[in-house]
Design a protein around this nucleic acid. Structure first.
Lengths: 348, 348
DNA sequence: CCTTTACTTTCAAACGTTCTAAACAGGTCT
DNA sequence: AGACCTGTTTAGAACGTTTGAAAGTAAAGG
């Protein structure tokens, strides 16, 4: 490796014959500076390729311009597009984004606390189905945080402690199932992930049950299948394997509702491998509205969440709260039922 | 927000009645410390929830324990699994990982330089099809860097300036095309992304041509289709749109080779929408071996790159070079031809 | 009782910024 | 000429850590 001179702010100051603070002023677009001096300094900076040391900056600044994004269940392609949007918004505001994955066996609060303190971050976005047990835990986080597309938070937690942005999973899920029932399906299997606590999976399962009840129909518990491999819940692999199991179980059904598109895509493959035609023999529906749902054949009927919009609003809200010009909010978006080729009326 | 006491190392020192450096010693597992003192300090740290400030640490330390991963073309799902592995390896070594996406219009070296200087990183992994023009540019990077699954680097650049790990795209691509020819196909269309310079797309196109030449067959330039939307080259959307265009062109072909699985999946949908059966009417082949290729129907014949292995070795190599116990290397992995349902012998 | 040795611990100087308060020019007004 | 602006610049104290050199302790050796 070649030796390369790495200039600091001091070097630049010396080079320009000015004080360090003047250079700092120039860099940070402070008002009180002579435009001429500023131009000269910027010139020198370009020439020597000076880049301010982020650590030194963050050390001194009270507000390290950075937020954390904590994601549980990275396997779900659903998050990728959200993260991209969040990143964009951060760039606009000149904020750095610390992306951290939470493993299934890790405690969310502990991880959040650690990363926030380490990097002196100003806020947190929680992405995905986290589940919080107590208010005490949440209070340990000393910065504003926002849940996005998370599961339900227990009722006993004070609403103005956090923000929550997403769709009403239970209601939208019910809509989907109601749509299937409307097509004449009565034997509707559901492919759901873990369902302990108020996880996303549980909410969507609740919606499934709601839809049946609303129509005064019986729920057959043997048509509820859990896909939980202990790791990434919403994966294609998981959907595929569980659907195989469903088929082996011998239960009869004319429609299958997978509570996530990734699961549905795996299910689609398993069904077709087994010789079922979609939708002629079995209707298949997903949930999320990921890109890929449009590219499989038959294209997947799904409940599209406005991911980009949610991600964008989440980020803006967090910045607003950090800046002190907004308060915690609870926003519910509408999902959109996208009817594609994978569902049709039941054939008698 | 509640006021929370954020202890510093000084506070811990005072609390324990010892000097700051002793606390520092305890945290960093230095040898010269009384086990008893250490235990007491660790106890206090746990009690007060002290977490060292990363900025202060990195500021003082010569070696900020962190590397950068620069990705061009995030839309390609191919990278997701690689990033996951790199992250794992970093965690093992207690290194932080700075993930940065490079936009299509950004200069890779400029971005790399900026991020490395800002964060004082120790090394760089370049993921994906970057293209380097000159040795001078590369020399500007003052830390070791490793290319992974990148395009070919021009011959005139000194080999011991960098490492390069991946498969021989040209050779493996030729293998795939040769396999298609072996099935009796002669009119093989290729769906390729941008092809200026020695990009990955160009290499795979070269392989396509090699395969024809090796058999003494003619190449029909009108069967070469470029999918370049100026943004994410290897996306399903891009594959879909370009295949529509191919079909409109009216050129005849019995097989389509998409140089990336994401493109192939988009192509698959476009072909089926247009009423073509795969593989009865048209054989379809991809390249990369992403997970999803197994879940579409028909499952996709593809050239599987050992992504996990490549990512793991890339990271290990970079750490080795940083530690000074390894030198730059150029490693070529074998890809694996996975024959699935989407290809079959041409029907006469 | 004074050295030596080995083990612990502390002091204080960095690291590269930002930011407050103070200083400095060069007017303009009494 | 002094007082008072106004616009620009600077010195220097933080920020929270690591680290090498120095200092302190206690046990062992003479």
């Amino acid at each position: 490796m070649v030796f390369v001179f790495e200039p600091t702010i001091k070097d630049i100051a010396k080079l320009c014959g000015v004080g360090v603070s003047t250079v700092s002023r120039a860099i940070n677009n402070h008002p009180d500076i002579n435009p001429e001096t500023k131009e000269k300094i910027m010139e020198t900076i370009r020439e020597y390729g000076y880049v301010p040391n982020d650590s030194a900056r963050n050390l001194k600044r009270v507000d390290a311009k950075a937020i954390a994004v904590l994601v549980k269940g990275i396997a779900n392609p659903f998050f990728t597009s959200m993260i991209k949007v969040i990143e964009e918004e951060c760039k606009k505001k000149n904020y750095a984004m610390e992306l951290t994955h939470i493993e299934a066996d890790e405690d969310e609060v502990d991880v959040a606390q650690k990363v926030v303190k380490e990097k002196r971050l100003r806020g947190i976005i929680f992405l995905g189905g986290l589940f919080w047990h107590s208010e005490d835990k949440l209070k340990k986080l000393n910065v504003p945080f926002v849940f996005s597309t998370a599961g339900a938070i227990p009722e006993n937690i004070s609403k103005n402690l956090y923000s929550n942005i997403g769709v009403d999973d239970r209601r939208e899920s019910a809509k989907m199932v109601d749509y299937l029932i409307g097509l004449g399906h009565t034997k509707i299997a559901i492919l759901v992930s873990e369902a302990e606590g108020k996880s996303i999976g549980q909410l969507r399962l609740d919606g499934y049950c709601d839809a049946f009840r609303a129509r005064g129909m019986e729920i057959n518990p043997r048509l509820i299948f859990h896909a939980y491999d202990g790791l990434s819940h919403f994966s294609m692999e998981n959907g595929y394997r569980t659907t195989k199991r469903i088929l082996e179980s011998g239960e009869e059904f004319t429609a299958l509702f997978a509570v996530a598109d990734a699961l549905a895509i795996g299910a689609s493959r398993a069904l077709m491998e087994a010789g079922y035609r979609i939708p002629e023999d079995i209707s298949l529906a997903g949930y999320d509205g990921i890109d890929m749902a449009n590219y499989i054949t038959p294209s997947l009927t799904t409940m599209r969440q406005p991911t980009e919009e949610i991600a964008r609003e989440t980020t803006k809200l967090l910045f607003g709260i950090i800046a002190g010009r907004m308060k915690h909010q609870h926003i519910t978006y509408q999902a959109q039922l996208l009817v594609k080729e994978s569902t049709r009326a039941v054939s008698h």
